[in-house]
């Protein structure tokens, strides 16, 4: 079966600076794949290339069709991007944030909201609160919940552990795995905390200065000491 997401020779630039060089990677249906590497390696840009929020060249095939370059096209195709910094609408309420997550879906979203509240009961408690007043952990849950509202086939997750206590991070990754198991969603996660990512992901790609330098199943990368030391920092 072909992969859900396929990047083939994708390049991206910010103005005159080329940030991604010939990136090729794959994510299978229901797979959790990690993108690792140091700061500035181009991890976030890779996600943005998929969600259409950065100018890119090269082909991206999603669910059998070529993905157009417009940001709303990715959302409509079933890709939900949780950006660095959560990207919540701080002035809107929790409920309104979730409602926006389901923007591309037609009809009633009550069921989807219930589904999200099952995963994150704390969000239901704070339904009418302004999103900006939530704690860091709650905002991350809200960001994930918003992504789930779209019933996506693929979730792009950028640095979910950033600024969160380890217990919270564990909670979030547990929910993620449940989501993958229950809803068959694939996840492409960018993480600076390589050990954490490799503990949960099936496969990983390591980026350095905009190139894929190493890739493979997580156990292999974990056991390869030189890879760990050179690229993963542990």
């Amino acid at each position: 079966m072909s992969a859900l997401l396929q990047l083939d020779g994708v390049e991206a630039r910010y103005g005159p600076v080329k940030v991604l060089h010939e990136i090729s990677l794959e994510v299978g249906r229901g797979e959790l794949v990690a993108v690792l590497g140091a700061n500035g390696a181009g991890k976030t840009t890779t996600l943005r290339a998929v969600s259409g929020t950065v100018r890119r060249t090269g082909d991206i095939v999603f669910d059998g069709s070529k993905l157009p370059r417009r940001p709303d096209a990715a959302a409509r195709a079933g890709i939900a991007h949780v950006p660095e910094g959560r990207g919540t609408f701080s002035e809107l309420s929790v409920w309104e944030n979730l409602r926006l997550g389901a923007y591309t879906r037609r009809g009633s979203v009550k069921e989807d909201a219930q589904h999200v509240f099952e995963y994150f009961p704390r969000l239901e408690e704070r339904k009418n609160q302004q999103a900006g007043t939530l704690s860091g952990g709650e905002q991350q849950m809200l960001a994930l919940g918003r992504a789930m509202m779209a019933r996506p086939k693929l979730v792009l997750l950028d640095e979910p552990s950033l600024g969160l206590a380890p217990m919270l991070v564990k909670e979030i990754f547990d929910r993620l795995e449940r989501m993958i198991a229950q809803d068959g969603t694939a996840v492409l996660v960018v993480e600076q905390n390589a050990a954490l990512a490799l503990a949960h992901a099936a496969r990983a790609y390591v980026l350095e200065v905009g190139h894929v330098v190493v890739s493979g199943p997580s156990e292999e990368l974990r056991e390869n000491e030189s890879v760990r030391r050179s690229y993963l920092g542990y």
Binding site: P71, D72, L92, G101
Partner: peptide, 23 residues
């Protein structure tokens, strides 16, 4: 309304709005 919400969202946070599919 959904459209009204989308309008407010677009004015508040462009990037996030694009990510959820708002034009």
């Amino acid at each position: 309304t959904k459209l009204g919400l989308a309008l407010r969202a677009a004015a508040l946070n462009r990037e996030s709005s694009e990510l959820v599919g708002v034009r």
